[in-house]
Amino acid sequence: MSSETLIIQAGLSERSRKSRLPARLDLLQSLSGLFLALFMWGHMFFVASILLGKDAMWTITKFFEGYHFFGKAYPWLVSVVVAVVIAVFVVHAMLAVRKFPINYRQFRVFRAHAKSMRHGDTTLWMWQVYSGFAMFFLASAHLYQMLVWPQDIGPFGSGGRMWVDGLWPFYLVLLLLVEFHGSIGLYRLAVKWCWPNCSREFLKKLKWGITAFFLVLGLATLGAYMKIGYDYQENYKNGERYTPTWAQQAEESAK
């Protein structure tokens, strides 16, 4: 057994040189959060491509499936990306949960504290805990789905999931959670590491601006998918995948 193990077991770790791990974990928590938040910004823009039309969305999807590089789509490429995101997500969740209240006593004390203080940053953190906790489940479910059935991503597939499978309430909730959690998290990062070194008032305004922007974008996108889901429910039920306009035209002209 290593001496370190024995030292820890004997309860003497406080007496030896302090572990460098807490520093790394703290940094990792921030970096994983940053990665996820930036990923979600990108993700939002990609899914919002539906607002530019089904073709745009299809193109982006196929781009991620490597269509533009290999001339053929490989949905498992998306699975790879999803797997990476899942890994970061799990790491972030593990690190963040260390900060959560670990028992009812702590939770009760913190809630009373936040209520009494009426202090913006403290209240926002309560939201982080709630939204983070909820995302353990909701985001996990979504990620699992994307990991296993990446080929279902597309105008018909995604739209159908919203409308025909009735998952739009799930996505609505997830959207709200992600946008609040992400922007509060980014704000917290700026404050935590003090970069850029500017006032919290400004950062807060910026944060609310970003939240509002992505919420509007997100709601519009959700609406667009729901409409497609409604308009093309039969196609979805038949397992049909969306064919881009140029391919339809090519097909028609071929006929």
Partner: peptide
Amino acid sequence: FGCMSLLGCHDVCPKELPLQTQIAFLRR
């Protein structure tokens, strides 16, 4: 590393110490 940067400290400090900057500095 236990600090979550909620900065209640900074906002109530009666001496208006620059706690936000100092804690961030120390964290870095």
